[in-house]
Nucleic acid binder design. Structure first.
Length: 921
RNA sequence: AGGCCCGUAGCUCAGUUGGUUAGAGCGCUACCUUGACACGGUAGAGGUCUGGGGUUCGAGUCCCCACGGGCCUACCA
């Protein structure tokens, strides 16, 4: 069997095969009736705007690691996948495609446009699903959800109408962020602020009935057409005499009042500010305070409106240019200053946002935010990394109402109807709307106006902000508003893993919505998740944010094809230290591809050698004894070998370290631990250590050796499985299997075995390793042919040390490539060969060739120097009474014993140095 | 403007309550094609933790300041 296993691990075929099999077998289907504690997690639904990117990959890797780990620990595990319709984002993608054919959505009409987006959704959704399957995400695809599907629409209706009836949702004319390209309102969170170099125009407004001017400073001269006042600070001596008088608005020849308002900053600009209530949030507020008219001088697409006088029809930037030029001509432009300021742009399409008055739907946030803040403050939801908790709470404290309506075509249409006869909205706030399952949309269409009874009803054309439906995700996907079995069992979910960039958009809103809408008595049963882990952002190798425009995006599928999913997953895990962003380069992945290859080859070695023992009459089935699964050390008759005690002890430690790390999202730590255990402890030491034993003819001894070797290997595969699901699945199936065993993913994660911890074995092994390394080191130094077995001498004053070496002589000889090791008591006097000394032993290799004494002397001096400094520092510390009295005794003790060791070593090295110096003279 | 994070080996980064000689991967040097693995093995070089001050018996780890880099939130026209 072994020869056909390729020498290098080739993941491509293997991964595809298992990915397909897991999916088809519905291996990760959750059963609410299954035993065990519940671990449930909802996939942050990817937007149907294309395909999986590396950020998704990181997120899914982290989720998958924890999900697989919990599943293997016997949890009733659900990872529910799905996708988000991503209102504005998806609509924008399709609009861009249409633009390539010079078609606008208006030309297509709403119905046809929606059809196109659905088509796009199918494609994109399929791609994403295929990719996730290929990348090994162990989610339950039988429960896949999409935010626009009927059951979820039902949840949206229920949520909207409930909030509406409660007065939490209202309609109002208000200042919103308007994207002139998308032609919709967007929420404050969807506005990005970019620093830009702009100008500050100083414009003279003539005072009516005087030849005086008042000079205002503005970054947006085109909005002056809508000015309805000029404001100054009430205590500003420069302008006090003008308060209450009128200014003549240039270009429009409109008289506007000069008002006093504390909002005005005397230090900024000229201390006089033009007030445009329809085009600036501050001016809007000021306008309300002073009862100013609101003149909207722009259209939906940011051209000048009828109210803009002779500038009507001009694009806003053209209008700006013309207005500045006209002011110049009229000698009303006092000066132009350079000015950097933050310009709001649409997060989707990058167009400059126009603050604008319009009638929109809003959701009251204060009451929701209060309880959402409380559950975090009370630790009902724990936030990791912790510093995000503060960010979250700050935001909750300063929250204001959420504009939930969008003038888009792709999304959940707001379930409100307007009456053509009486203008009333149906349903009425106090009405009860019955929603019939399966016919949610149809059933909720009212037949007549709730006020006048007219049947001339038109539905609101606006749709809901996409985050409105996302906010219901953890419970809408489980069947809410019905108290389904899934909802009962899997809600609240155990954990949310999301990027910190959507903490406010999504995480916070799920908390608010869950608390408010899920009907359960106890608050801790209404929260959407118990823990919130915010993962880092993947950046390019230079730490830059990946973006399509920068051209530095990496395609996870491409990387996967090249190096294997497991390698990429492991690389992501290793770099996923909480709270730090990840700079991903291909080199990283290569390191872990090498690791996968290492595992593969360790397996090859084991399988390859099976032949040898088969000739002993030991069969695969013998190795399949329960010990393998329980991973218990196997004794051949009496005592366990030191190396066996050691590797099992290490494994017990490693298992616990990995578990602890997973509990606290320290993926990098868990990955490091298993990496070094497998490569360092298992491959470099354990396998090499037992190699000579493998040829032993005696059946029981051979069996013991092989069983232990396989036990450790098999357990290591299970430890590795959450990180590298494909490779471990493949190798695990090559091992002897219990009948009916389907997948390593359904096997048990190694259990805690404190009884395997063996401090003696670890200490002894460490000492033997030190001896072996010292020997190799000497050999390298005197340039002995690496393959040549040579004789060495060993001296130690401690009888126990000598006994230890004696007892493990064969292994030491083998690993140090020695023909013999003469053991004696006492210590060497640093002559007669190359010597290495430590506090506990001396090792000497006789050799006639003169060693490079100069290099050796340099090395020794350096080492002696370092030791001397260290000893000095420790002596001083120990001589300090305050230290002795204040530091814990344990610290003092260990310092003392370390000092003794250092001193012994120091002395030995000095003797060696003297020796060398006298020899060379 | 406020807040957050980062600055540790040539590079990319770890370093959980402060406590022995600060770690890893890549890269580098020397030797090794040894039947698991050159995506390998063995041995080695290389940081005093951005700078300054403080708290402490003891600080990469806590506090303050400075410098450098990044991010988020913000209604100063």
């Amino acid at each position: 069997m072994p020869p056909e296993i390729p020498k290098a691990y080739e993941p491509q075929e293997i991964e595809k095969r298992w990915a397909q099999s897991w999916f088809e077998e519905k291996l990760f289907r959750a059963d609410p009736k299954a035993a065990g504690p519940v671990f449930s997690i909802a996939l942050p639904p990817p937007n149907v705007t294309g395909s999986i990117h590396i950020g998704h990959m990181l997120e899914h890797t982290q989720i998958d690691i924890l999900v697989r780990w919990r599943r293997m620990n016997g949890y009733n595990t659900l990872w529910l996948p799905g996708m988000d319709h991503a209102g504005i984002a998806a609509q924008y993608v399709v609009e861009r495609q249409l633009a390539l054919q010079n078609i606008t959505r208006q030309q297509l009409g709403r119905e046809e446009f929606e059809r196109r987006v659905w088509k796009w959704k199918e494609e994109s959704g399929d791609t994403i699903k295929r990719q996730m399957i290929r990348l090994g995400a162990s989610c339950d695809w039988t429960r896949e959800r999409f935010t626009l599907d009927p059951p979820l629409y039902r949840a949206v209706l229920e949520a909207f109408l409930r909030l509406y009836r409660e007065g939490m949702i209202y309609r109002a004319r208000y200042m919103v962020n308007w994207c002139p390209r998308c032609q919709t309102a967007i929420s404050d969170l969807e506005v990005q602020h970019n620093e830009r170099n702009g100008k500050l125009w100083h414009i003279r407004y003539p005072i009516v009935g005087s030849d005086e001017f008042i000079v205002v400073a503005t970054t947006r001269p085109e909005t002056m057409l809508g000015d309805t006042a000029v404001a100054v600070h009430p205590d500003d001596e420069r302008y006090k005499h003008l308060i209450g008088r009128k200014a003549l608005l240039p270009l429009m020849d409109r008289e506007i009042p000069i008002i006093a308002d504390e909002f005005v900053d005397r230090e900024f600009g000229t201390g006089a500010v033009k007030v445009t209530p329809a085009h600036d949030p501050n001016d809007f507020e000021m306008g309300k305070r002073h009862n100013l008219p609101q003149i909207d001088v722009m259209t939906n697409d940011a051209h000048m409106s009828d109210a803009a006088g002779k500038y009507v029809g001009l694009d806003r930037y053209v209008a700006r240019k013309n207005i500045v030029a006209d002011l110049q001509t009229l000698d009303l432009l006092e000066r132009v200053a350079e000015h950097t300021h933050a310009v709001g742009v649409c997060a989707r399409c990058n167009s400059e946002i126009e603050p604008r008055l319009s009638v929109q739907w809003f959701c009251k946030m204060k009451p929701l935010a209060e309880s959402a803040a409380r559950v975090v403050r009370d630790k009902l939801i724990s936030v990791v990394p912790e510093n995000w908790e503060k960010v979250y709470l700050d935001w909750m404290d300063r929250i204001y109402d959420w504009c939930i309506s969008r003038q888009l075509w792709w999304g959940h249409r707001i379930p409100i109807w307007y009456c053509a006869d009486c203008n009333a909205m149906t349903p009425a706030r106090d009405s009860r709307v019955e929603i019939v399952e399966g016919r949610a949309q149809a059933a909720s269409v009212p037949e007549k106006c709730c006020v006048c009874g007219s049947s001339k009803l038109t539905q609101e054309t606006d749709v809901l902000d996409t985050w409105f439906s996302s906010g219901l995700w953890p419970f809408s996907t489980l069947g809410w508003p019905d108290e389904t079995e899934d909802l009962r069992v899997y809600y609240p979910t155990s954990l949310l893993i999301s990027g910190y960039d959507i903490l406010f958009f999504w995480d916070a809103r799920m908390i608010m919505m869950g608390l408010h809408l899920v009907d359960r008595a106890k608050i801790e049963e209404r929260i959407p998740f118990h823990r919130l882990y915010l993962h880092s952002i993947v950046r390019d190798p230079h730490g830059m944010k990946m973006s399509k425009t920068r051209g530095n995006v990496v395609d996870p599928l491409e990387l996967t094809e090249k190096h294997g999913t497991d390698a990429l997953r492991f690389a992501l895990a290793v770099m996923a230290a909480p709270g730090t962003d990840i700079a991903l380069s291909e080199d990283h992945i290569l390191s872990y591809r090498a690791f996968a290859n290492k595992i593969w080859n360790a397996a090859r070695f084991l399988f390859f050698n099976l032949e040898k023992i088969e000739s002993l009459g030991v069969t695969l089935e013998d190795l399949a004894a329960p010990e393998i699964r329980a991973a218990a050390p196997y004794k051949n008759g009496g005592e366990l070998e030191l190396a066996d005690r050691w590797i099992f002890s290490r494994m017990a430690t490693v298992r616990d370290e990995i578990s602890d790390a997973f509990e606290t999202f320290r993926f990098h730590e868990a990955a490091h631990v298993i990496y070094h255990f497998f490569w360092g402890d298992f491959c470099d030491w354990y396998i090499e250590w037992v190699k000579p034993r493998l040829g032993v003819a005696e059946r029981d001894a051979a069996l013991a050796t092989w069983r232990n070797l396989f036990s450790v290997f098999e357990a290591a595969l299970r430890l590795l499985h959450p990180f590298m699901p494909f490779l471990t699945e493949e190798l695990w199936h090559k091992l002897p299997q219990r009948v009916g065993a389907k997948s390593i993913a359904l096997e048990q994660f190694p259990v805690a075995r404190p009884d395997w911890r063996d401090a003696d074995a670890e200490r002894q092994m460490a000492l033997l390793q030190e001896i072996i390394v010292a020997s190799r080191n000497l050999r390298a130094e005197i340039k002995v042919d690496p393959k040549k077995k040579i004789a060495a001498e060993f001296a130690a004053t401690e009888p126990a040390v000598r006994a230890l070496v004696e007892a493990n002589l064969d292994s030491v000889l083998h690993l140090a490539t020695l023909s013999e090791l003469k053991i004696s008591s006492g210590r060497f006097d640093s002559s007669g060969g190359a010597t290495r000394s430590t506090a506990q032993f001396d090792l000497r290799i006789a050799h006639s060739e003169p060693v490079d004494t100069k290099a050796e002397a340099i090395r020794l001096r350096k080492e002696i120097d370092r030791l001397a400094k260290d000893i000095e520092a420790k002596r001083t510390r120990l001589a300090d009474d305050t230290f002795r009295s204040r530091a814990p005794e344990q610290v003092v003790r260990s310092l003392e014993s370390t000092l003794a060791g250092r001193q012994a070593e120091h002395q030995k090295l000095q003797e060696r140095l003297k020796q060398i110096e006298s020899n060379s003279n």
